[in-house]
Simulated assay, not measured.
Amino acid sequence: MTDQTKELIDKLQVKPGVKVKLKDGDARGERLFRDEPETRAETAALAEEINALQDRLYAERQRALLVILQGMDTSGKDGTVRDVFNATGSIGVFVHAFGRPSEMELAHDYLWRVHAVCPRRGTIGIFNRSHYEDVLVPKVHKLLSKSDIGKRYDQINDFERMLTENGTVVLKFMLHISRAEQAQRLQERLDDPRKRWKFNPGDLEDRKLWDEFEDAYETMLEKCSTTVAPWYVIPADRKWVRNGAIARIVKATLEEMDPQYPKPAWKPTDFSVV
């Protein structure tokens, strides 16, 4: 891991037990990267390196990587997948977007549907939204008691610890977008006929609850950033900064996992292809 990446991780990782104030955070990431073209080129190169590491992970088939993308509407969850994992072989990467739970899912505990789509060994799984919706939304809309939500923080921590103890590394990225930037991106969806399909009038209702959601995110980060599955707060107002930061952390994580190609039980010299 390079010194630059270590410094980046130190800046963005939420240390367990530390209070989080998103209002005081830099949603633009002004001091993370100096040059946009240079960072875009680096991200493209990192995407290729992530692909090579994922190939080793798939061949090894002993461990998995779960990448969780959580953030306000328009924070760039889809864009992150496109730009950071665009070079990665599709056979070893799976994206799951969580929407409203189905009737079948509601008949089980809230983590049932999550566990069912966790990545199998040898693969990278990406969650577009996640089980954290089950503490964010109930807190903001007062669907559960404070006590019940508190239990869920503990249950989620236990769930993620279980995943890590069974070979799944968990990376959690909270995409931090400012209210002003969100307004601009929502307006762009309205103005561009090609993007109007993305616009959901319900997003405007959630936007009215911006402060409540921000408070819920802060609590989530404080309660669920653990030593085994820490959160990273990623500046998301500038897409190239967001992508550059996440690509560096994903690559460094895969390097630390250091997956290896398995050795065959036979010798190549025992065979010849005619």
Score class of each variant (00 low, 15 high):
residue 138 P to I: 10
residue 51 N to M: 06
residue 169 V to Y: 04
residue 160 E to G: 09
residue 10 D to N: 15
residue 270 D to R: 01
residue 255 E to Y: 02
residue 228 V to C: 12
residue 24 D to E: 14
residue 163 L to N: 06
residue 157 N to A: 09
residue 63 R to D: 14
residue 140 V to P: 11
residue 111 L to K: 04
residue 133 E to S: 09
residue 59 A to S: 12
residue 11 K to E: 06
residue 241 V to R: 05
residue 261 Y to F: 12
residue 273 V to H: 04
residue 127 F to G: 00
residue 192 D to F: 00
residue 117 V to C: 01
residue 175 L to G: 02
residue 168 T to P: 06
residue 4 Q to H: 10
residue 35 D to E: 13
residue 10 D to F: 01
residue 188 E to L: 12
residue 136 L to D: 01
residue 76 G to R: 07
residue 201 P to M: 11
residue 158 D to F: 00
residue 72 M to N: 10
residue 133 E to R: 02
residue 16 P to D: 13
residue 45 A to L: 08
residue 162 M to Y: 01
residue 16 P to L: 07
residue 233 V to E: 00
residue 111 L to P: 02
residue 196 R to S: 12
residue 133 E to P: 08
residue 271 F to A: 09
residue 223 K to I: 08
residue 78 D to P: 15
residue 241 V to E: 01
residue 138 P to L: 08
residue 7 E to K: 02
residue 77 K to C: 10
residue 79 G to R: 14
residue 42 E to Q: 08
residue 186 L to M: 15
residue 236 A to I: 03
residue 5 T to A: 04
residue 90 S to E: 12
residue 64 A to L: 03
residue 4 Q to A: 15
residue 56 R to C: 04
residue 156 I to P: 05
residue 29 G to A: 03
residue 53 L to E: 13
residue 205 E to Q: 14
residue 41 A to S: 10
residue 248 R to K: 14
residue 92 G to M: 03
residue 197 W to V: 04
residue 260 Q to M: 09
residue 234 I to D: 10
residue 205 E to A: 07
residue 172 K to P: 11
residue 212 E to A: 14
residue 15 K to Y: 06
residue 165 E to V: 06
residue 240 W to N: 07
residue 46 L to W: 02
residue 206 D to E: 15
residue 68 I to S: 06
residue 210 W to F: 05
residue 78 D to F: 05
residue 83 D to M: 10
residue 271 F to N: 11
residue 104 M to Q: 14
residue 231 W to D: 07
residue 30 E to V: 11
residue 116 A to S: 06
residue 170 V to N: 12
residue 161 R to F: 13
residue 38 E to W: 01
residue 141 H to R: 05
residue 220 M to V: 13
residue 18 V to C: 09
residue 199 F to M: 10
residue 213 F to D: 09
residue 75 S to L: 14
residue 269 T to W: 01
residue 167 G to K: 10
residue 6 K to P: 01
residue 141 H to E: 11
residue 187 Q to A: 15
residue 44 A to P: 05
residue 70 Q to R: 09
residue 62 Q to K: 08
residue 113 R to S: 03
residue 142 K to G: 13
residue 35 D to R: 10
residue 268 P to S: 04
residue 264 P to F: 00
residue 214 E to F: 05
residue 6 K to Q: 14
residue 128 N to F: 04
residue 75 S to H: 09
residue 203 D to W: 03
residue 213 F to T: 15
residue 85 F to V: 15
residue 205 E to V: 13
residue 183 A to W: 01
residue 198 K to Y: 08
residue 225 S to H: 04
residue 216 A to Y: 06
residue 116 A to Y: 00
residue 95 V to T: 12
residue 123 T to C: 11
residue 250 V to H: 09
residue 183 A to S: 14
residue 202 G to C: 02
residue 165 E to S: 08
residue 171 L to Y: 03
residue 118 C to S: 03
residue 82 R to A: 15
residue 159 F to N: 10
residue 232 Y to C: 14
residue 152 R to T: 12
residue 274 V to K: 09
residue 167 G to F: 03
residue 226 T to N: 14
residue 97 A to F: 00
residue 236 A to E: 02
residue 163 L to Q: 08
residue 147 S to I: 07
